[in-house]
């Protein structure tokens, strides 16, 4: 039971970071390989608040979110005007920079890591924050701001011509995603009670991005499915010991080949999402039928 709960907490913690990244990558179209860095900021700041300053956990979570958000504003100012791949490379550099800086700060344990942090993250805290994160992400995406993010992803120039401040909306997506990664980091530090910089390396950042892509870009429910599968898969195959990473890798490849848009594509597993995709399918079939009828008329 303890073990299952442990996995559930890990899934829940990752889910917050993945939902944030889903807004940035899935909906706004900006790929980041540095969100491990924002998690690290959240983790270390919250550890300072709980272990060094002995302040309440709630304050630590908020501090983690706010500091990750503030750093992301700074990073965004430097990088958001960069085109496509360059932004991606810049975030990669940022993630590694955070890790190297933390390696050299003895106050937080440096490269050796920082142990015996208080365990404050419970399943209920994680569950509550997960629900809040889903609601925030869902409401944001289904508002005019969220639609503008999607417009930026779909066609940046047309978005500008539609009066959308592209830079500002990219910034919104980046800050929200960074703050959510910060929260996930804070929960992580105060759950496993031990943090060190390598936990937030590029592999961690890539893991988060893979979960978003695996679940399906542009789908909140996809991100949830992706996180569930990819966090629990390695645990399920723990008995196969050395084979589990192979199976994990294979699963990712099979999905990429079989469903290149991710498990869910842009589809949402909600009543309105189902209605919408069925309506789109009907409309497409009607159009095709019409085109065929026209063709027959031409031939006749």
């Amino acid at each position: 039971m303890e073990y299952i709960q442990g996995i559930a907490i890990l899934i829940g913690i990752n889910l917050i970071a993945v939902l944030g990244l889903s807004i940035l990558t899935g909906f706004t179209g900006l790929f980041s390989f540095g969100h491990g860095g924002f998690m690290a900021i959240g983790a270390y700041i919250s550890a300072i608040v709980t272990a060094r300053l002995h302040l309440p956990f709630a304050l630590a979570i908020i501090a983690g979110a706010v500091s990750a958000g503030l750093v992301s504003i700074f990073i965004g100012r430097l990088t958001l005007k960069l085109k496509g791949d360059y932004f991606c490379i810049a975030t990669m550099g940022f993630g590694e920079a955070v890790r190297v800086i933390l390696n050299n700060i003895d106050y937080v344990g440096g490269a050796r890591g920082w142990e015996s942090l208080p365990q404050l993250t419970s399943i209920w805290v994680v569950l509550g924050l997960d629900i809040a994160a889903v609601i925030v992400a869902w409401n944001l995406i289904n508002s005019r701001h969220g639609r503008n993010l999607v417009a930026v992803r779909e066609e940046e120039l047309a978005a500008q011509m539609a009066g959308i401040d592209v830079y500002r909306h990219k910034m919104i997506a980046l800050v929200v995603s960074a703050a959510m990664a910060g929260i996930a980091g804070a929960l992580m530090a105060n759950y496993i009670q031990f943090i060190r910089p390598t936990m937030f390396n590029m592999a961690k950042s890539t893991d988060l991005t893979i979960m978003v892509i695996f679940g399906g870009l542009g789908s909140i429910s996809g991100s949830i499915v992706g996180t569930f599968l990819l966090v629990s898969l390695p645990e399920l195959f723990r008995n196969f010991a050395q084979w589990r990473l192979v199976i994990y890798g294979l699963a990712v490849i099979v999905i990429m080949v079989g469903r290149p848009k991710g498990v869910m594509g842009g589809f949402e597993l909600t009543p309105s999402g189902i209605r919408k995709s069925m309506a789109a399918r009907r409309a497409r079939l009607a159009l095709e039928a019409e085109a065929r009828a026209l063709e027959r008329e031409d031939l006749a």
Binding site: S143, R144, R147, A151, E154, E155, A158, A162, G218
Partner: peptide
Amino acid sequence: RLFKELSVFDNVLTACHASAKY
């Protein structure tokens, strides 16, 4: 240059954004 993956309705709805101030 349309928002290709969006429905016809969402294309127009997105561009209406400036009429709302929330």
